[in-house]
Design a protein around this nucleic acid. Structure first.
Length: 570
RNA sequence: GAUUUGGUAGCUCAGCAGGUAGAGCACAUCCCUUUUAAGGAUGGGGUCCUGGGUUCGAAUCCCAGCCAGAUCACCA
């Protein structure tokens, strides 16, 4: 890989440091006794504080003024300005540490540790007066330089491709990115402590599953060599957690990475996180109250208020949330009462609403399509949608009083589903029938239809207590709670197409063709990066390219003859 | 997967009636020497995503491909 001029200069600086006896990557720890944030928060109140500090961070800006300089370092808590004065850094005659090491050999991006005291400059900025500094890491790649004044950001590092592929750079130069991930972790911590306080047991269940189930989705398929068997990456952990309820726990939950082999966009990543919770002897009414309480608590823990700004809107998680049944909400937004319609009538209704339908769609999918198209995007404030048709919920218990429905709810927020829950079906005979109905859908071509899990059926034949179950999308919730426009913004490393590496042949491969060593870099520079594409080159063009580069780069190599060039690629 | 927009210096972007590649920041050298999106001067840096085509000549026009964004489809 060819280095840019700046990278070459940094490597030279690295060598210079080593020649001066400075290890640019020292092994010993560097004692830190304060953070940038603490200094900025407390120093204005008490100027006697921080008179002997030790702090480390990455150099983000430098303003060199001759025998005095300013720099800013960034630590995990923020940035603070440093003041370097030549005669303080170098008390004796030898001014190398300032003139050479600081001014010439350090760059933006390097990590240093400093000792000194805090003061306020004439410009009124809280600053560390450096008495001593130590190079902790020399950076070889130049960072994007993002500047800011009066809230206006200049040259922001915004290209999503680079931000996601090189998240570390994104995090260094866009501090708000680090903030989002701190909030995400706080969200998970808040949820976990809420559940632990209720004494539910956090568990782990298999990610590699011989039969995938618990959701309507296409799986990733893999193969286990020793067992010579197909395994799937889980699309949900529902069926395993219910087995644990059968086994006798009365409340289990898991933060589970699930994998679905489907489209990717700003709401979907192939791997994502759900929290699933199952509690025995409860029903979906109880679960709705629990979800409200839990999410309200999360909003309070993250923001100190139940109101969260998302885009242009404020979403208020204060209890109680609005509740609609599925039929009610469809009637509300379309004016059509679909409650008594059969599959044919629904299909017609969907068509008049200009919703695409196909042959594989059963009654459940049709209703879901109408809801997803006409209702879901309008539901901004957190809202529970309850009582789904039985066809679209093969794992939910039949409604206690309404024929053809199940006891299921979803919470919708900002136009997107954030959770899905139901009174779990514990009638093994009914469960088997529901699976069989799914198999029928599968035969019709529905690739997301569930498969029949005999072991799960066996488990609930032993008897599962009435149970309320919940799946809540952590990424979706994190998006809302951090005001993020896309799921990629709440995942450290969202899935991207692999970067394709340009194949470059080794020097030896070229040398074996009889090419003199001094010409090999020139050939690569000319764009002939593999032996194969060199071999297929027109020798006259190659000859011209090489002579052209020789002239352009003012190379002190004698030009090859056309016959020599021909002999290389013959 | 479909449609659409984009890919130019380390970063952010301009250039596109086809005629030798530009700016700001970053980098280098020098000056100034308590500054603050670093004050001045000078300079270096480019496979204009890749491959074809049209043309005397392509960063610019056409076709194909790669990567990304947006919208749509599937899905949480």
């Amino acid at each position: 890989m060819e280095l840019s001029e700046q990278e070459i200069i940094r490597r030279q600086s690295l060598e210079e440091l080593q020649k001066l006896g400075i290890n640019p990557y020292p092994a010993d720890l560097f004692e830190i006794n304060v953070s940038a944030k603490d200094i900025l928060a407390n120093f204005p109140n008490d100027k006697n504080l921080y008179q002997d500090i030790s702090i480390a961070g990455r150099i983000m800006t430098r303003r060199i003024m001759g025998n005095a300089s300013f720099a800013e370092i960034q630590d995990p808590t923020g940035r603070i300005q440093l003041y370097f004065k030549r005669d303080d850094i170098c008390q004796g005659e030898d001014k190398t540490m300032y003139n050479t090491v600081f001014k010439k050999l350090l760059d933006i991006g390097d990590i240093i540790g400093v000792n000194g005291f805090v003061f306020i400059t004439q410009m009124g900025e809280i600053t560390v007066h450096v008495k001593e500094f130590k190079v902790l890491c020399k950076s070889l790649k130049p960072l994007p330089v993002v500047k800011e004044k009066d809230g206006i950001t200049y040259d922001a590092f915004t290209d999503p491709e680079q931000r996601y592929r090189q998240r570390y750079v994104d995090m260094i130069v866009n501090p708000q990115v680090r903030e989002i991930f701190i909030k995400r972790t706080k969200l998970i911590n808040s949820m976990r402590s809420f559940l632990n306080e209720k004494e539910y047991l956090e568990v782990e269940t298999p990610i590699l599953q011989p039969i995938y189930g618990g959701a309507a989705a296409r799986p990733f398929k893999t193969h286990h060599n020793a067992l010579d068997t197909t395994l799937y990456l889980r699309i949900a952990n529902e069926l395993y957690l219910k087995r644990l309820i059968v086994g006798g726990y009365d409340g289990v939950y898991e933060f589970s990475k699930d994998f679905r082999n489907e489209g990717m966009d700003r709401f979907h990543n192939p791997e994502f996180t759900q929290m699933e919770l199952y509690v025995a002897y409860k029903d979906y009414e109880w679960m709705m109250n629990t979800v409200e309480e839990m999410v309200e608590q999360i909003a309070l823990d993250l923001h100190g208020t139940t109101e969260v700004k998302v885009g242009e809107n404020f979403i208020n998680f204060k209890r109680p949330w609005k509740r609609f049944t599925m039929y009610e909400v469809i009637q509300h937004y379309t004016g059509i009462d679909i409650s008594a319609m059969n599959e044919e009538q629904l299909k017609k209704t969907a068509c008049t609403l200009e919703i695409k339908v196909d042959e594989t769609m059963g009654r459940g999918k049709l209703i879901d399509a109408i809801f997803g198209e006409k209702c879901e995007p309008n539901l901004l404030q957190p809202t529970f949608i309850t009582d789904y048709p039985v066809e679209m919920s093969p794992l939910a218990k039949k409604h206690r009083s309404k024929e053809g429905l199940v006891e299921r709810f979803e919470a919708i927020c900002n136009g997107k589903e954030i959770c899905n829950a139901f009174s779990e079906l514990n009638d093994p005979v009914d469960q088997r029938k529901r699976f069989e109905a799914q198999l029928e859908l599968g035969k019709r071509g529905d690739e997301e239809a569930m498969v029949l899990d005999e072991d799960f059926l066996r488990a609930i034949e032993y008897g599962m207590p009435p149970t309320a179950g919940l799946g809540i999308g952590i990424d979706r919730l994190a998006m809302v709670m951090t005001n993020s426009q896309s799921i990629q913004d709440v995942l450290f490393f969202p899935q991207m197409r692999p970067e394709k590496k340009a194949a470059v042949a080794s020097t030896d491969e070229f040398a074996s063709l009889g090419i003199p060593a001094e010409w090999i870099p020139v050939i690569i520079k000319a764009g002939y990066t593999t032996v194969e594409n060199l071999k297929t080159a027109n020798p006259n063009k190659l000859f011209n390219d090489l002579c052209g580069l020789r002239k352009k780069l003012k190379l002190e190599i004698s030009a090859p003859t056309i016959d020599e060039v021909k002999s290389w690629i013959a």
